[in-house]
């Protein structure tokens, strides 16, 4: 075991701890602005996990979209809706909380069991199988080929979807404004 593997594992455990703690604090924070800050930390840590997996392309998109764009959107939503603060809005402490926690524990245990069972069927789950390690240029080339040649129609579909949503939302807001006026 060389020092690079140890460094990778240390970074992985650090990012994992940050992700889990920040995600929990996002849910448990009473003030919604603190939730947003912890969520930004989660999104950036997920980007670092992508970098550990040699996916710099995805990491940059994660930083740009989830690290910057979406928090700005959420911050504007908070500003538009914060003139009436309701301190009682926190978590639903009721029978729903207990039932949800029990369901979540069962969910985790079931999927963990499935993972352990599948590890006896497939041999690559516990071995770092990477038969073909691409360098940075080959990785970028391969992703670009897949994105702009192989999955070209999917990419165009996503772009068209974003365009339709932007136009649709704008017209919806205009329609609503006229009706209110």
């Amino acid at each position: 075991m060389n020092s690079a593997e140890i460094l990778t594992s240390v970074i992985f455990y650090l990012c994992s701890a940050v992700i889990i703690l920040s995600a929990l604090l996002t849910i448990l924070s009473k003030r919604i602005m603190y939730s947003l800050i912890f969520a930004i930390i989660v999104f950036f840590a997920v980007g670092f996990i992508f970098m550990l997996l040699n996916a710099e392309y995805n990491a940059i998109i994660q930083f740009a979209v989830y690290g910057v764009a979406i928090p700005i959107l959420i911050a504007f939503a908070l500003m538009f809706t914060s003139y009436k603060t309701d301190k009682s809005i926190y978590l639903a402490f009721s029978a729903r909380l207990i039932l949800t926690l029990i369901s979540a524990i069962l969910f985790v245990l079931t999927l963990f069991n499935i993972l352990l069972i599948s590890s006896s069927v497939v041999d690559w789950l516990f071995t770092s199988q990477s038969s073909l390690i691409l360098n940075k240029y080959e990785m970028f080339n391969s992703i670009s080929n897949g994105l702009y040649i192989k999955s070209f129609f999917a990419l165009e579909l996503i772009a068209f979807l974003v365009f339709v949503i932007i136009v649709g939302f704008s017209s919806l807001t205009l329609f609503k404004g006229k009706r209110n006026g």
């Binding site: 075991m1 963990f112 993972l115 789950l125």
Partner: peptide, 14 residues
């Protein structure tokens, strides 16, 4: 030795 299993567990918890 960080394997696929570790990433799957992390994704499961998140």
């Amino acid at each position: 030795n960080i394997t696929l299993f570790h990433y799957l567990i992390l994704a499961l918890i998140l």
